[in-house]
Design a protein around this nucleic acid. Sequence first.
DNA 1: ATGCTGCATATTTTT
DNA 2: TATGCAGCAT
Length: 771
Amino acid sequence: MPEPKTSSYLDSLNDVQRQAVTTIDGPVLVVAGPGSGKTRVLTFRIAHIIEQGTAPWEILALTFTNKAAREMKGRIEEVVGKRASYIWAGTFHSLFARILRVEAQHIGYPSNFTIYDTDDTKSLLNSIIREFNLDPKVYGANAIKNRISSAKSSLITPKLYEKNEELLAQDKLANMPLVYKIYTAYVARCKKAGAMDFDDLLFRLFELMQNVPEVVQKYREKFKYVLVDEFQDTNTLQYAIIKKLVQYPDSPRNICVVGDDAQSIYAFRGATIQNILDFEQDFGQFGIQTFKLEQNYRSTENIVNTANAVISYNKRQIQKSIWSDKGVGDKIRVIKAVDDNEEGRRVADTILEQKNRYHLQNNDVAILYRTNSQSRIFEEYLRRFNIAYRVYGGQSFYQRKEVKDLIAYLRMVVNPNDEEAFRRSINHPKRGIGGTSVAKVTTLARQQNLTLFEALKHVDLPKRTRHAADGYIHVIEQAMAKADTANAYELADLIAKGSGLTDMLRNDKSIEGMGRLENHEALLDGIKSFVEDDTVIDTDTLPDKSLATYLQNIALLTDADESDSTNTDVVTLMSVHAAKGLEYKSIFVVGLEEKLFPSWMSMDSMEGLDEERRLFYVAITRAELYLTLSYANTRYRYGKMVMNEPSRFLAEVPADAVENTTGGGRRSNDFEFDKVARQREHRARVTGVTPNKRRGTARFAAPKVDPATFEPSPITEVETGRRVLHLKFGEGKVLHVDGGADNRIATIHFSDLPQPEKRIMLKFAKLQVLD
DNA sequence: ATGCTGCATATTTTT
DNA sequence: TATGCAGCAT
């Protein structure tokens, strides 16, 4: 007797989806084409497992992004209620870190281990390279980081690396025969510092499961059902861990992986579709059940057919036929521009045209490019056309220097062995402890096998430097003494003040300096709201609201987690990679030229080109209704004009899906189109000058003043009483000017700011005098 | 120890 | 074009 309640959510699924949801026992492979309701299947499946009597905490659901995890949890909650919060749903890295905190002692790590981010890794590698007296030009930190990362992802320890002829040969060829030594040292130094990098979170867990039977046993019993999202993006190491969990004698093998080989775009990071093929191999004898979600609910037939045609040029793929019943839809438009400027203008103009013709909102539109550097020109023209936009990508809040500087201190308090945090904080703010002193500390640490922080206490230093060092030690130890009782905010506040970081930033009156201060304060505010937030964070080991818990939370949070005010109506600009999983009514895929898309770096191998093609496939399948492709004959790259052929991918788009642009008639049409565009641009420029009055502009983009019309005046014209325009702050009135000759500082009242009075160094400022 | 200038350098990047 | 870092001058 099926319960009537159960049927309610199952009713909204198609046949294949429903089978994929209700077949919960044994190995299951779900091949999910773009827009095929993959997330629905995954969430309903988990809900179904719970409805069938499994406890939420016995379910492990692995995703790649925090965002995907949050979304999944939210949607499960809609079906099963609050119980959803007990599901082990999260990213590989965050869930594994959580397990490692509990089990760390088995592998000689403290449970408060630090997580090294990419910058920490590179900086540590650079120290090692310097200590080995190797040429940092030959031994590039980035290249070595990638070597080490891919070694770890392929389960190759330093010992194995040392014996691996192939890897050694590759290194020799790259003129870096000593990579294995660096790898060995790097691993040792991480361990010494009580730190794990992103790969270690996976690798160490694997090691743990490999070497400590009680631990594997424990988690095998705990997780009754395991689900993996975006399986095509997993690497060998991730798959190895999954197998550890579900592949053992007498295992029920309740494993479900969901993915799409055609959307695998992270091979350059070690992801391999081979995992999908291996999965079929590894679990085949245990009655694997495969479901193919082939109906695309997102896009028109024209778009789906184009995507199918394009991807068919790839050799290796899982057979499937994606289809849509949403009607043929509009043809695909191709914009040919003579140069990158024209491309920008034509795209902006087409957006306006589509907004009018199809009543689209800015929100319905996204511009996708291969490289982030392409965004600039589009930003320029969107501003000129008065279209609000937002650029995704680039560096996140937690990557900023000033933010990382304070965090380095906090990390020292939690784990004083953290070498990178030490290096970062020891002379920041400048207290006169430079390279020479740090070298002394390092030597002593090496000799006596001390951590850097311990060595600093005992090292012989000149009086002045000793004094500075004691000050530093005092700040850290003072906070450490309170770490058990004080919450994260109290400690952070103590350190921000005690270290002199806040003062240093306050004293910097430059515009950039003010931005830094703002970020510094935003970080403190963030910590405060973390402390005040009443949701309990499940860490198993760390005390709630503690600094350690806070750090653990942010370490794995790089994502666009920055309270993304989704309500604002803006056009989205981002790389194709960043667009995965998203959808828009109208999509512009731009810069479709050889050597750009496909990227020149990928063009020398078949695999590289196939991955670029999958990337193109991902790009076009983001579109629901309208797809526009564009390219330019010439564009500026690194300041040089370059000429490129149209992308080969354009030739792979079926001609009958494209709006007819052949023949001379279209050319005159193009010309008209351009003329109209220029007129519009002109109007927008004329009306666009009125600053500070635009509605619905994005937080990060579209400044109050239009840079296109902004003309800085000579600083001699900035005088008391004058009205001036500032690029960031808008319109203001000069209250007075002081300082002599070269160092004139103007105090200006900007009425649009929360704190209207700003002191601005005229030497650096760009101000336009208005009257 | 620090600050500046000149030069080499240059995908994509869930964590 | 923009950025970051190495080497030099202070």
